[in-house]
Structure formats: structure tokens, C-alpha cells
Design a protein around this nucleic acid. Structure first.
Lengths: 192, 192
DNA sequence: GCCTGGCTGACACAACTGTTTCAGTAACGC
DNA sequence: GCGTTACTGAAACAGTTGTGTCAGCCAGGC
């Protein structure tokens, strides 16, 4: 059984990719093996074989979603030297507000909330992990004197809060102009 | 059938209250009639009779959660005249950060995310409704010249985003000092 | 007395869940 | 040729799901 600790096979990657597209469209909450399998042209038997059990599948899907997330974060940290919190927020928001990322972000919100309520099982630690991921990247964007110390931690925590709070609003209201105006307002405040 | 449009009976209120406590502890995601019924000393049969079907029960639970939420909002708007956005954020955050509200806020996050992914059924419009509720109350806190116009809308949207983003962080990390420091930092920024 | 309305228990129903068992098929190294 | 490895189909398993059926209990009005 390929399951884990071994490199995923070509077939495994192919089916995971298909299942990921399905999850983006239908959500993870009431994901069920049979409907998923028929939708992606497979069978529950094969999914069990490749991922061990349903939890393994969900874990693989969450990791797959995290890859998309880290791809964004990576582009931020790529710069040789820290760009500062304000440009970082600016760029991240442009990414979050883009229409084509809506399904991914809905999936993210779903996984985040679920991992808060049910801290065991496949969802375990998802929320906590993304908080740490983002704070680390934002820290890397801060210049050196600011980065350390509690004030710096408060500043990047605040930046993260604004981004995520605005995202929640956007996902529910779809009122991009109003929410983007709010983010811009914050950027103006931060610039002083 | 009592179901809806008729005033809820005493028994209905009693069972709803018990189910609400159960939902706060176990979440709504995999809520199931039989375990719930035995936990609150009832039976699926009775729940069906009183709430019509499972969707009716979930709807009633979401409305019940909203009552708790509106109780907070009501205390904000009670003041005779607008107190301003900054004191409003200050008070709301004190409420959000209180330990005893954690279960309610987890339930809120769960319902919010789910209503984003699955806009039909019992969850329909929950996210949208809470955005509107909060923005309306925050608007009522703004003094008259500021309240109208796009700048005012951006300011209260931003206030809401900070509160909710900070809440998401707090629910995942449980690091209240760091998150509260971030909110205080924002208050300092807003005060100019 | 009886009737009515609110509530309840026991049970059955069909659909669906994740998972397992058994039996394959196709490609590849030797 | 043979064995091994990766994958797959069909069917069945036991358990759970929401819901329906039929009956019965008990208080209050008449």
C-alpha cells in the first residue's frame, strides 16, 4: 500500500488532482467516497487502496490545498530582502481578492473552521498551521529592527487579521469594492 | 405540527436549549439526530415532531446562536448617541476575547464557513446575515457626519475585518496576549 | 364520561456510509 | 516462461443516516 511515507505514484497524483478539483467545487463538509469516485472516473476501492482510508484522502486534499497557499507565500518571501509589511499586505490582498481564487479560499475557510471544532482526525492542526505559516512569512517581510520584539509581532498579527477578516467579508458579501476600500484605508493608516 | 410560524411551545424551547448546549460542545458539522436525542434525553421522533425535520432543527439552532450574538450587538447600540468606532471595537473585542464565549464563537465560525460553501439549505445566508448585522451596528456607532459616505463604510468594514481576523487567530492559536496586542495596536492607529 | 391536542415510544424503511473480501488484469524484470 | 508489483471491478459487510408508521399516554375543556 502506497499510503504514506512513500513517494506518491503517478496514478495517485492524477486522482488526487481530480479529487482536489472536485473538492474545490463541492466542499469538504459532506464529501463522500462514492459520489467523488464516480465523478472523477474512479471507484471507492481504488481511493482506499491509494490513500489508505477516507481520512488519508482528506489529509492529502488539505495538503494539496496548502501547496496552493504556500505558492503565494513563497512569492512573497522570494525577494532578497524584506519588503516591509505594507507592500506585503498590498500584494496578498490583490491575490485574495482575485475572482479565480474564490473556490480555494472557500475551501480554506471550511477547513479552518472545521479544524477549530474538531481538533482530532484529518483536520487536526490545520488552522494552527496556517496561522504559523502566515505569521512566519509576514515576519520575513518585516525589516530587521522591527521584526523582533513584541511590537513587531503585534504588527504582523494585525496585518494577518485585517487580511483574513477582509477575506471573510468578501467571501460572504462579494462586495469587492467596499472591502478593498477598507484594506486600502488600513494601508493608509499603516503608512502613517 | 408546531414547526414554524407558530409560537414555540414550552417543550420546544426546553429541547432547543438543550440541543443548543449540545451543539456548542460538539459542533454542527456531524450533528446527528440519534446521538443528540439520547444526549438531551429525548428521541429522534420528538425532534422531528417539534422541528419538522433536521433542517428545521439546524435552522432553529442557528437562530438560537444568533440570539446570543444579537444580545452583544444590542448592548452596543443601546447607548443614546453614537459612541464612535474606536470604543465600539474596544468593547466588542473584550467580549470576543473572553474565554467563556469560545464555544459560541467556534460554532459561529463553523456556521459561517459552511454557509459559504453550501449556500442552500438550513445554512443559507448565515454568513451574509451576520456581515449585515455587524455592519449595521457599527454604522450606528459612528457619529453622523462620518457614518454616511464611502469613507465611513470603509472604516466600519475595516473595524469588522480586524475584529473577525483577530478572532480567527485567537480561536486557532489561543494566544490571547499577542492577538489583543494587535487589536490595541489598531486602536492606537485609529485614534491617530 | 369523552374528545382533542401536545407529546412520546418502538419499530421499520430505504438510502447511504466507510470498509473489506475475493478475484482479477496489465506491465515489467528476469 | 514466472513472479512481482500496481492497480482495478463487483459485491458484500455492518453500521448509521433521516424519516415514516402505528400506536399510546396524559392533561384540559366540555
Amino acid at each position: 500500500m502506497p499510503q504514506e511515507a512513500t513517494a506518491p505514484s503517478a496514478r495517485q497524483i492524477e486522482l488526487l488532482e481530480a479529487a482536489y478539483r472536485y473538492a474545490l467545487a463541492h466542499g469538504l463538509a459532506d464529501l463522500s467516497l462514492r459520489p467523488l469516485a464516480t465523478a472523477i472516473g474512479s471507484s471507492p476501492r481504488v481511493l482506499m487502496f491509494l490513500f489508505g482510508n477516507k481520512d488519508g484522502l482528506v489529509r492529502a486534499l488539505l495538503e494539496r490545498a496548502r501547496v496552493d497557499e504556500l505558492a503565494l507565500l513563497d512569492r512573497l518571501g522570494r525577494a532578497g530582502q524584506p519588503i516591509g509589511l505594507v507592500p506585503a499586505v498590498e500584494r496578498v490582498w490583490a491575490w485574495l481578492a482575485a475572482d479565480e481564487h474564490r473556490p480555494l479560499l472557500r475551501l480554506w475557510a471550511e477547513a479552518y473552521a472545521r479544524s477549530l471544532v474538531e481538533p482530532e482526525g484529518a483536520w487536526a492542526g490545520f488552522a494552527r498551521a496556517t496561522v504559523d505559516d502566515w505569521l512566519a512569512v509576514l515576519a520575513a517581510c518585516q525589516p530587521q529592527p522591527e521584526r523582533d520584539g513584541e511590537a513587531g509581532a503585534a504588527r504582523r498579527t494585525l496585518a494577518l487579521a485585517v487580511l483574513r477578516g477582509a477575506l471573510l467579508d468578501l467571501l460572504a458579501s462579494d462586495d469587492e469594492p467596499r472591502v478593498t476600500a477598507a484594506v486600502r484605508h488600513q494601508l493608509a493608516l499603516l503608512r502613517g
